[in-house]
């Protein structure tokens, strides 16, 4: 059984790796965005799904990474690969500044601090015009690299899914999940909750920063409203809740299902689409707290760590 699953995964990855050889330009861009959403949803899952601390502003890390990457590419002539990694580091630094004061406390402080963060980042980016181009945005030099960005996004999605697997099946992940279940009990067991919450948060900020750098390179032009939209955070949250929070494959399942749906059906009805997202959140929280994967687990006796 285990070997069958691994073989299926290997074949799936091989097919995805060969896909650009036969794909159209649209196909590559579609898959590239799908990978991006898997990576983003999976990252949100690391902090909110595992430790139970809700981040309402994860797009701030995406936007920070996008700007850091784009600035390094345009003004310092970096290659977009290392520039995007630097974007991830910038996102982690931001996470440290916010996470240290807010995660020392229990309760909703962290959630609200994240709710405001996105707005503040947008204001700051618009204000420091010399560095960021302000409201008129930042253009990157023309480069046709969709094929390379396809692999880069795919690697990011794979890496963060792999990290989720390693965490969920390890002692560190158990500590995260103990914090989610009962923080006081976690402390009583000798877990340094402050420190582990911060670890989870820093981990969850890195990949959105990197992916933000890839996104900036792929788009070729970024502005404050294009890389700090509240909708991106909402989408991450909905994908994870729908698929199953705190699981390895739930965010992947949620991202794939909702992204395909979004591209095929909803792109033309923005507000209805968002009402639908709001309704999914309410529905999942009240009636299906473990998402689709939770329902499947109960029905088909799937393994606990999936």
């Amino acid at each position: 059984m285990r070997w069958a699953v691994l073989a299926a995964l290997a074949i799936g990855l091989l097919l995805l790796a060969l896909y650009p050889l036969v794909a159209t330009g649209y196909g590559i861009r579609f898959m590239l965005q799908l990978f991006m959403w898997v990576a983003l949803a999976q990252s949100w899952n690391l902090i909110s799904g595992l430790t139970g601390y809700v981040s309402f502003g994860h797009v701030a890390f995406f936007g920070t990474g996008a700007y850091a990457g784009a600035i390094l590419v345009t003004t310092h002539g970096w290659h977009w690969g290392p520039a995007s990694l630097a974007g991830g580091v910038a996102a982690v630094i931001l996470a440290l500044i916010i996470g240290y004061p807010c995660l020392r406390l229990k309760g909703p402080y962290f959630a609200i601090a994240m709710l405001g963060l996105n707005e503040v980042m947008r204001v700051l980016v618009s204000y420091f015009e010399g560095l960021t181009g302000g409201g008129s945005g930042l253009s990157l030099p023309t480069l046709h690299a969709s094929g390379q960005i396809y692999y880069a996004m795919g690697a990011a999605a794979l890496a963060v899914t792999g990290a989720a697997h390693l965490l969920i099946t390890s002692r560190v992940g158990l500590r995260f999940m103990t914090i989610r279940e009962d923080e006081i009990a976690a402390e009583a067991m000798g877990i340094n909750t402050e420190r582990y919450k911060l670890y989870a948060f820093l981990l969850s900020a890195f990949v959105p920063g990197v992916v933000g750098g890839f996104f900036a390179r792929d788009q070729g032009y970024i502005e404050p409203i294009s890389v700090f939209p509240l909708l991106t955070t909402i989408t991450m949250i909905v994908m994870v809740l729908f698929g199953g929070k705190g699981t390895i494959w739930g965010p992947v399942l949620g991202a794939v299902t909702l992204f395909v749906f979004q591209e095929l059906v909803w792109a033309r009805f923005l507000y209805l689409h968002q009402i639908f997202f709001g309704a999914i959140i309410v529905f999942v929280v009240l009636l299906m707290p473990r998402g689709i994967l939770g329902v499947l687990q109960e029905r088909y006796r799937l393994p606990r760590t999936i």
Binding site: S48, G52, Y53, V54, F56, G107, P108, A111, R180, I234, I237, L241, Y271, L272, Q274, I275, F277, G278, A279, I280, I281, V282, V285, L286, P289
Partner: peptide, 21 residues
């Protein structure tokens, strides 16, 4: 706490977009 934060967040998104429509 996660449940009430997410629930009221969902309510908020739905209401804001009903208003948009």
């Amino acid at each position: 706490e996660l449940s009430s934060l997410l629930l009221t967040f969902g309510i908020s998104i739905a209401l804001v977009n009903v208003a948009q429509l």
